[in-house]
Design a protein around this nucleic acid. Structure first.
Length: 306
RNA sequence: GGGGAGAUACCAAAGUGGCCAACUGGGGCAGACUGUAAAUCUGUUGGCUGACGCCUUCGGAGGUUCGAAUCCUCCUCUCCCCA
């Protein structure tokens, strides 16, 4: 059997965590998290991390490995995961990766070009320019420095425009010149499993989970992080709505309403993202046996062809 | 019982004779996305159509008008105030 990475994808609250742990127990293997927020050790309740028992049952990687003050990126994730896998495949022929961060997942599936980390001062400067003067000046500069990228960026999207610029300004080269979509050859196989629920049911689960987070003390957790609210890691559903409440912009009921709504929106974006993978095979999160059978059948097929 | 206000699309709410299939917000739906991505951005939301366009809408029934969500009459319902 060739080394195999089974990726469990699906929108938030679709049951990825529980299912992955059951699968990991079945195969006696380990789990790599693919979740941009569960990496931060300062956040727990609002990111729906696996609980202590779950973490003790199965060993998880890339959870609590960062501080909210740290720099991180999809490229670093790709480096971290490929490094980890090299090591883990010595112990297991099958590894599970679970999580909802589409871009990170994509960095593993399709690879991601090697682009230098941006200079943090340049990043800050661009943000300040944007806040002060808006997008027009930045767009004009981007058109100069990288006409090819300028031609296809979404010019309404400040994040995209600033990203292009920060690379141009940091490296002295055009952003486009780095974005070559270099094909990757992984020395392992990937099986993509998507979890799917009727929309209505998914939304119910989301609403319920938010209520549970509140019961577990999300407000307290957010309160502790409030002084750092400007950090990007804290620009996260469940936290920023509470920060607004602390600022007196909303009351508690409204904050909860918004957390639920924004989580639903987030789930929808994840579903849309996953649609880009025609090879993704969808299952109901309760379909444990079907999933096992499906994966076994694929692996058996590969074994035969070897 | 008397007086007043109002009924608009999934919800809220503008519109007060033609520019209205109807502002706006919410909610929904759909999409883009190679770097802090739980982020950031876009489209759409009466029906049919690829499109031109056509059809049915603004509580109900009539009426006035070349033309009505908008004016008139009656009816139904809701809300508020006084009793």
């Amino acid at each position: 059997m060739p080394p195999t990475l089974v990726i469990i994808a699906g929108p938030t609250a679709s049951g990825k965590t529980n299912l992955s742990i059951k699968l990991a127990q079945h195969w006696k293997t380990e789990i790599i998290s693919c979740d941009s927020r569960q990496m931060y050790r300062e956040m727990s309740i609002g990111t729906a991390k696996p609980d202590i028992d779950q973490l003790n049952t199965i060993s998880h990687h890339l959870i609590d490995n960062l501080s909210i003050h740290d720099y991180y990126s999809a490229y670093r994730f790709e480096q971290d995961v490929t490094g980890l896998l090299k090591h883990l495949f010595n112990k297991h022929s099958l590894i599970i990766m679970t999580g909802g961060t589409g871009l990170y997942m994509d960095a593993i599936i399709n690879g991601i070009d090697d682009i230098p980390d941006p200079d943090s001062e340049i990043r800050t400067m661009l943000k300040q320019r944007y806040d002060a003067d808006g997008l027009d000046g930045l767009l004009a500069e981007l058109a100069q420095l990288d006409p090819a990228f300028y031609a296809k960026v979404d010019r309404n999207n400040p994040a995209r425009v600033m990203r292009g610029l920060e690379v141009c300004l940091t490296t002295g080269r055009s952003f486009s010149s780095f974005r070559i979509k270099q094909a990757v050859n992984r020395d392992f196989d990937i099986i993509l499993i998507g979890l799917e629920l009727p929309r209505e049911e998914l939304y119910q689960r989301i609403n319920l989970r938010v209520d549970r987070m509140m019961e577990k003390g999300l407000i307290e957790e957010a309160k502790g992080l409030y002084p750092m609210k400007h950090l990007n890691a804290l620009n996260t559903v469940g936290y920023r709505e509470l920060f607004d409440m602390f600022d007196g912009k909303t009351d508690l009921d409204e904050a909860i309403r918004l957390i639920k709504r924004n989580t639903r929106h987030y789930a929808k974006r994840q579903i849309t993202w996953n649609n880009r993978y025609p090879q993704m095979k969808y299952f109901n999160p309760d379909g444990f046996d079907e999933i096992i059978n499906w994966i076994d059948s694929i692996v058996a097929c590969w074994d035969k062809s070897l």
